[in-house]
Nucleic acid binder design. Structure first.
Length: 280
RNA sequence: AAGCUCAUUUAAUGAAG
């Protein structure tokens, strides 16, 4: 059962729902009874492939097949409805899970917070934070990164900086996601000095940068057309063994373009295409 | 039960808007 579950999940993650469904059916034929985790994997696979109705159907069916939805099941399905904007359904599912004796956990709250933030439901997002606190769940790095992301998108930069200070004051150690988020906020506004200082802080803290981290830094320079510095970051990135991505080249092209070096921007485009990247 | 720090669910990156 564990093997089948792993495979169902793996196919789901690879975007091959049909294979996932086939394995799910096949395991029954081999006398293996799917458990709650298998259902969770199947629901996720269908949802991620865009078959939300099928996912909802599986969710309804599982109990009849002897599998009680657990916290993970609810979190998945709540994520599906809330990111789909069906907030009332998501909220009624939270009630359902409570009736089943399951308490919403940090994942549940972070899921709702992210969905409400994304859907610009500020009241609901705020209420979620409040509910989270009331139920004794402390904000974690996920919570902070959601808040930081949307501060960034809304241009509430100073608030983001304050939050970043708060999270450290509360004893959290920022991870690569939090640093990258902050860097992208600085990057978007071209605040390269702060970005550079934060990048140093990150490395001093022993946090390993990802391609996204470097992207924020390049953006900061790109904003001002400072292409020599942007290229410098790319070299730094290559030296640290981080593979550039399409977004990396895009940021670099932006730096050249804003710096009035369209020819070089085109050169980067050609180079990345030659390296097998498909421009987005 | 099994898995010796991941079997399944939540967050971050460009430009434009």
């Amino acid at each position: 059962v564990v093997t089948y579950t792993t495979l169902v999940d793996a196919y789901g993650k690879a975007g091959r729902v049909d294979e996932a469904i086939r394995l799910f059916d096949e395991m029954g034929n081999h006398g293996r009874v799917p458990n709650t985790q298998t259902y969770n994997a199947l629901i996720r696979a269908q949802w991620r492939a865009g078959f939300t109705d099928d996912a909802a159907q599986v969710f309804r069916d599982m109990r009849g097949n002897g599998c009680e939805p657990d916290l993970w099941t609810y979190n998945t399905i709540i994520n599906m409805y809330s990111t789909g904007g069906l907030y009332d359904v998501a909220e009624s599912l939270v009630e359902d899970m409570r009736r089943q004796g399951l308490s919403p956990d940090r994942v549940t709250f972070n899921t709702l917070l992210a969905a409400y933030s994304k859907g610009r439901q500020h009241e609901k997002a705020f209420a979620t934070l409040d509910a989270m606190r009331r139920s004794g769940c402390h904000p974690d790095l996920y919570t902070y990164s959601i808040l930081l992301t949307y501060c960034g998108k809304d241009g509430r930069t100073e608030e983001a900086i304050r939050l970043f200070k708060d999270l450290k004051a509360n004893g959290h150690k920022p991870n690569v996601v939090v640093y990258s988020t902050m860097l992208s906020i600085y990057g978007r506004e071209g605040r390269y000095e702060e970005a550079r200082a934060l990048f140093k802080e990150m490395k001093d803290a022993g946090c390993v940068p990802s391609a996204m981290t470097f992207c924020g830094l390049i953006d900061a320079y790109a904003h001002h057309g400072m292409y020599p510095e942007a290229v410098g970051v790319l070299e730094e990135m290559l030296r640290s063994g981080v593979e550039p991505e399409v977004r990396t080249y895009t940021a670099l092209m932006d730096a050249y373009a804003r710096g009035g070096r369209c020819d070089d921007a085109v050169r980067v485009l050609k180079k990345m295409e030659k390296a097998g990247f498909v421009p987005d």
